[in-house]
Amino acid sequence: MTSFMPPADRIWWKVPVGRQEIIWIAIALVWCLILFFMMPYWHIYGKQNLSNEAYQTTPAKFGAKVQAMIDQYKVGEEAGIPIVKPPAGSDVYLLGRLWQWYPILDLEKDKTYRLHLSSMDWQHGFSLQPININIQVVPGYEMVITVTPDQAGEYGIVCNEYCGIGHHTMVGKLYVKE
């Protein structure tokens, strides 16, 4: 009847609000504040936060850093892709390109690394499985994440940003060893 008619009172702003609505609004507001403060709280006390360290870069520049790391720390090869075992605590580089993650990283459990991510061409999605960590990889930007793998195992890196016809073949690998 009246949701599609002009309000019954000319000055509807002054019509008192029912107790039920007031109570609900109060409860909802408190909940919204909790939702909000959980984020800063987690920045201080939580362990899973993205750093906002990032740089503008170019495919050539980033590719050179990846290659330098491979030249120095290559320990093997799998399916034609180098396996690299950089020292604990160091900077490690991973690039996404059509359609592979390159190279394969071999990390030590409970050690902290600075993981640099960038793309050589289109956008890609770094999706570390089965642990399920998902990060957008954008060409022209080098993102640095400080990561401490705390479970040993063999992980897949699925590309979860659509990157053309070979998207589903873009799978990388990452080892975490004791």
């Binding site: 892709i81 999706s127 399920n132 897949g156 699925v158 659509y162 998207h167 589903h168 073949t169 990388g172």
Partner: peptide, 22 residues
């Protein structure tokens, strides 16, 4: 929640050099 990707043609990753099993 199990990590399956959106906009993705093949959960089996047919033809990928390295694999992963959901």
């Amino acid at each position: 929640t199990m990590g399956v990707s959106r906009r993705h043609w093949d959960m089996d990753f047919t033809g990928a050099a390295l694999g992963f099993d959901y």
